[in-house]
Amino acid sequence: MNKIRHHLTDSLLMSYSAGTLPEGFSLVVATHVSMCDDCRARMTEFDAVGGELMMQSGDADLSDDSLAATLALIAAGDSSDLGATKTKPRAKGVFPTPLQDYVGGDAEAVKWRRVGGGVRQMILKTGKGSSVRLLYIPGGAAVPDHGHRGTELTLVLQGAFKDDTDRFDVGDIEIATEDLEHTPVAEEGQACICLAATDAPLRFNSLVPRIAQPFLRI
C-alpha cells in the first residue's frame, strides 16, 4: 500500500476514543484506522487516556445486588450483545471491515445511484448528527464545487483525487471545514471511490446542483 500522507486530527481521534462522534464520522474514522497504522497507534493512546480517566472518575455506589445480578447475567449466558466489540476478521477487497458492515459487502455490493456528471453515490444508514455516503467519481470527473457549513471528511478507498489544496490517494483523508470551497477532481484512469461524511448539509455554489440538492440528499 502507498504511504498515507493525510491523517486524522487529534480532535477527531480523541472524540472517537471518547465515543462522542456522530456515527457517520465514527465510520470514516474506523475505516481510516483500519488502513493506517499511524492513526491506529494514536487512537490507542487516546483509548488509554480514556481508561485512565475512568480509573480516576471516583467510585459510584453500586446497587446492593450488583455483583449477584452480574453473575446471574453471566449464568444466563445471553451472548446477544457480543457483537459490539467482537474481534473482526480481516476484510478481503477494497473496503475495510467496518465499511463492509454498513454496505453489506465489498465494492461490488454497493447500490449506486446516479447523481449527474457520471458521479454516483450510495447513502449509508447511520444515526443522527451526520450523513455518510460512498461516492464514485469517474476518472477525470469532478464533484460539484461546494462549500461546507460543518465539517466534511473524505476518505479515498480507490483511485485518487486532487483539489485546490492537495492530492489525495488511497487511505488519505481530507478534512474540510467551513472556509474551504473546493472542487475535487478524480485523477485520469481508474474511477475514484470515496467515503464522505458531513455533520451539516453541503452548500453548492451553482444553481443546478442547488436545485438538485434535496434530491441528492447531500
Binding site: 465515543g19 456515527e23 465514527s26 465510520l27 474514522v29 474506523a30 475505516t31 484506522v33 483500519s34 497504522d37 491506529r40 487512537m43 459490539a84 466489540t85 474481534t87 473482526k88 476478521p89 480481516r90 476484510a91 475495510p96 471491515t97 467496518p98 458492515d101 454498513y102 447511520t126 444515526g127
Partner: peptide, 10 residues
C-alpha cells in the same frame, strides 16, 4: 442506541 463502527483487528 447507535452502532459503534470499530476498526478491523490486526
Amino acid at each position: 442506541k447507535e452502532r459503534r463502527p470499530e476498526p478491523e483487528e490486526l
